[in-house]
Design a protein around this nucleic acid. Structure first.
Lengths: 338, 338
DNA sequence: CTGAAAGCGCTTACAG
DNA sequence: CTGAAAGCGCTTACAG
């Protein structure tokens, strides 16, 4: 049987209160007793029960991480950062892949509540603001990767608008004029921000992005591939393509290959996220990097700060996106545009 | 304040024992009481405390998953499978990325013990057999992806030997004779099995794999790239290369490109795992697929079975590997071998 | 069919 | 500096 606090107390001839105090470094205990108890704990390989202490103390030292899918490399990397940052402070993390489905989201929410996790990081689509507000009144939360305005919830995002601008400016600098955008969904704020940034930069340069150059597609590789094949087949095809994540860009590369359109000489492709996928394709993808590590870390930090100071109003962290140039972009060839 | 079992009992005018019973469908409760209590629970949005019940009942409904790195696509996919299978039966999973470091492994082990998780899936390098045995005496475990002979621990593996054979047979059928192997480490059983299978198939065909064609390299992309560049530079270069995971193969592809060796016409590459990476490279990789979903599922199932029947001796599941042919392999060109 | 009571393994005022 | 006791929110024999 596992040793309990009672075993230690009996062995040491003291009360469990005393044992508890040396465990938690609370109150005043004589050095002698202290050492004696410590050595007994060691001898009996005593491990305090986290669940018993959670029932009395407040912390379970567990965090919940809601994301669409842990198998998606982007979220896997964020999860790793969350895990490591949490680990530093003694927290474990429970992964909750929601597939963005309400039913799974709700299920996980109630489970996390029942388990009394200390905080929840929400990186999943969550349009149900009422639910968010309710949850927030019970457990500290932080939303990651998207805005939930008008709610005033602690948030950490990447600077998507700037990311969009960076992509456009890079392509413009290479001489591209006729461009297109491949988006997974324009419903989430991050996508809209990327688009706005991209458009603004193009307009600032005196050009325009026609509406029919903004393509929405499903989230699987085949979808983006099919859409890009269609795009490349049309007349007046773009010389620059901005994809809102790496997987979409992979689809674009495959479509280009199938259509005998060479990347980058005939088509420049910029992707977003800069996951491992971007470095693995051929050609490797020029990509707007999201600081995945910092996203995860900042989310944990915001949670920890709430544990200490209660629910702070208006916490918002915006992290810089960055252009990583690889070989999928090159100077525009004006002749190809005719 | 959150409602407790006492609130429900008071409201219903019954004892907490009765409430507990309707919650757990135990004992006999009159239908009337039952419904009355149920409706009160609903009205008060009662959610039983998982931690209180864990302190008395036995289950925490939490599993631990030890893997080298959740950011590695292979483990991310396995994790997703574990999560989903667990979810079906009401279990959450705590991810523990160990980087194969003893210090992290031990830390996580004690945390998982303190949290009293119901079971642990071990997919991480763990050479400390004493620790495994000790852990096993406390908590149900299953080892995934490797053998820990001579220990008799529940295990689920892919058929690595057969995977190695499949790779060799595929290359042999394409006419390749001069081959090489790129391994991350030959210390773990799965790598050794792959190698054995590969060698056996080659020998069965009447050829041999020279020792200097078995290359071990680090686990980052740059390592494998450097090793393959060197390999391709040497005289008498192989026409077929078998890489023990997708990332190694990505490095090989990059090395080939840099060395102006065309894949697949001058070099055929077979990888292992068949993660998303294999489908994303150019050319897409012929790969030996590990059944990542089944690995995760089977691991959970083995755990659940232990919960029900106690520690069963000698549970071992071996799952089939499968050859997925893509465009990184092609017929050998005998002239190139000269 | 229902309830009183002990117990799970801790923490925390409070008293000394 | 140390301990008795109540309490956290449940479950489980046991008695009726």
């Amino acid at each position: 049987m596992k040793a309990t606090i009672y075993d230690i107390a009996r062995e040491a001839g003291v009360s469990i209160a005393t044992v508890s105090k040396v465990m938690n470094d609370k109150g005043k205990i004589s050095a002698a007793r202290r050492n004696q108890i410590l050595s007994i704990m060691q001898r009996l390989q005593y491990q305090p029960s986290a669940i018993a202490s959670a029932l009395t103390g407040k912390h379970t030292y567990t965090l919940g991480l809601l994301i669409p899918d842990i198998a998606n490399p982007f979220f896997a990397e964020v999860a790793r950062a969350v895990e490591d940052r949490g680990h530093q402070f003694g927290y474990c993390v429970i992964i909750c892949s929601t597939d963005n489905k309400d039913e799974r989201i709700e299920r996980y929410m109630t489970v996390l509540k029942q388990k009394q996790v200390d905080g929840i990081i929400i990186g999943t689509g969550l349009e149900n603001h009422a639910m968010l507000e309710e949850l927030r009144s019970i457990i500290p939360i932080v939303v990651i990767g998207r805005e939930v305005t008008p709610l005033d919830v602690p948030t950490v995002v990447a600077d998507d608008y700037r990311g969009g601008r960076l992509a456009a400016e890079h392509l413009l600098a290479l001489g591209h004029v006729r461009m297109a955008v491949l988006a997974e969904s324009l419903l989430i704020s991050s996508s809209r921000d990327r688009l706005r940034g991209f458009q603004d930069a193009i307009e600032d340069a005196g050009y325009a992005l026609p509406d029919d150059s903004i393509i929405a597609c499903g989230h699987v590789l085949e979808d983006s591939k099919a859409r890009v094949v269609k795009l490349l087949r049309g007349g007046n095809r773009p010389s620059g393509l901005f994809c809102f994540n790496d997987l979409l860009a992979v689809g674009a590369l495959q479509a280009a290959k199938e259509s005998n359109v060479h990347v980058p000489s005939e088509l420049s492709v910029v992707s977003f996220d800069n996951t491992i996928l971007a470095s693995v394709t051929n050609p490797p993808l020029t990509s707007i990097a999201q600081p995945m590590n910092q996203l995860g870390e900042a989310a944990v930090d915001l949670l920890l700060r709430q544990f200490e100071h209660g629910d702070l109003v208006h916490q918002r962290v915006s992290l810089r996106t960055e252009l990583i140039v690889r070989q999928s972009t090159d100077a525009a060839h004006p002749l190809k545009l005719l």
